[in-house]
Design a protein around this nucleic acid. Structure first.
Lengths: 174, 174
DNA sequence: TGCAACCGATTGCAAATTGCAATCAGATTC
DNA sequence: GAATCTGATTGCAATTTGCAATCGGTTGCA
């Protein structure tokens, strides 16, 4: 599955990179979910990706220089997938996409709280997040200070989940 | 071809709307190319879409409320496709997508000049363009004043074409 | 009036893609 | 040394895609 190069139009070429049903979902899980291993991506995927498709897309995204793969020193079979700068700069696009979907599509509350926060945070928050990703995936020098953007988003997600569980009486212990 | 609703995640749902190889290309041609008829979209498409796929996607985009169809009073068989507000608000996403593609992908000069201008114009230009689209497609009241954004982009494109034609000695008349 | 060109599609068909289930061999854990 | 976990691969049926040909109706022109 290569780039067809149907035309040199930037929008067309962008679509040829991630204009399918899975590539951007995988990148989303790596970026926002912090997943780095095959199994994490396979089992953690909300949408239930099949293992052969995951393998194919990871390979394709590596060929396109969106991802790199490295050995995990702690486990000789494990591979660690890392974002490239090319993929990290998708953050503003993902933020816009999330914001658009939140307005026009039947999103669920839990899963859109992250998009809402990211939208409210605006470009400064996106920049901070991209720098954190650079540190995490590219080994860029400045370690993030204070709570990370991902942790902030995750905490908001967890809070919504907890609140909704309480509301329907799913509190574990009386 | 309906929305699967694999999950309520905004990014996933957005992808289910236009995460294929053609939907966004069609919207691009309507938005930036000003095309409104089936044949215009079919023949004007840089990427060479097939008529059955175009028909299918137009139908799908109408079901998703991204487009509406109306009779052309001047031709009983002609249909005019119009953008909905939902589709018009994709402009910032298309602008980002174009900007990203221009940085990371092997775009051609002619086809990326529009993306470059749109990027430089920033949100104010996008807003102006969206208002023009609202006038054109939704009959919104304020007619655009001065040169339209689309005309500006088109002129820049034509200028690049002309300059390159001259450079390789393709000037029509001596 | 005749006719070619054009209108938005539709159909048939081969090829590619998708998604599911089962399976793999090596590494690690218990 | 058995069970589990690792990143995949394979076989297969169903769906989707893209191409070419074609459709019935409309229009413009001679």
């Amino acid at each position: 599955m290569n780039i067809d190069r149907r035309s040199g139009c930037p929008i067309n070429l962008s679509l040829e990179v991630f204009g399918d049903r899975w590539s951007l979902i995988i990148l989303r899980d790596i970026i926002f979910g912090g997943r780095r291993h095959f199994r994490e991506l396979l089992n953690g995927s909300m949408e239930g990706i099949a293992s052969n498709i995951l393998a194919d897309r990871l390979k394709r995204l590596m060929e396109l220089s969106m991802l790199t793969k490295a050995d995990d020193p702690s486990h000789k079979q494990k591979a660690i997938y890392s974002l490239t700068e090319m993929a990290i700069t998708l953050v503003p696009i993902l933020a816009h996409l999330g914001a658009w979907g939140r307005v026009w599509l039947p999103v669920s509350e839990e899963l859109s709280i992250r998009a809402e926060l990211l939208e409210k945070g605006g470009p400064p928050m996106w920049d901070k997040f991209m720098n954190e990703l650079r540190h995490e995936h590219l080994g860029a020098s400045p370690a993030p200070s204070g709570p990370t953007v991902r942790a902030t988003l995750q905490a908001a997600y967890d809070a919504v989940i907890a609140r909704n569980a309480e509301r329907v009486g799913c509190d574990p212990a009386p």
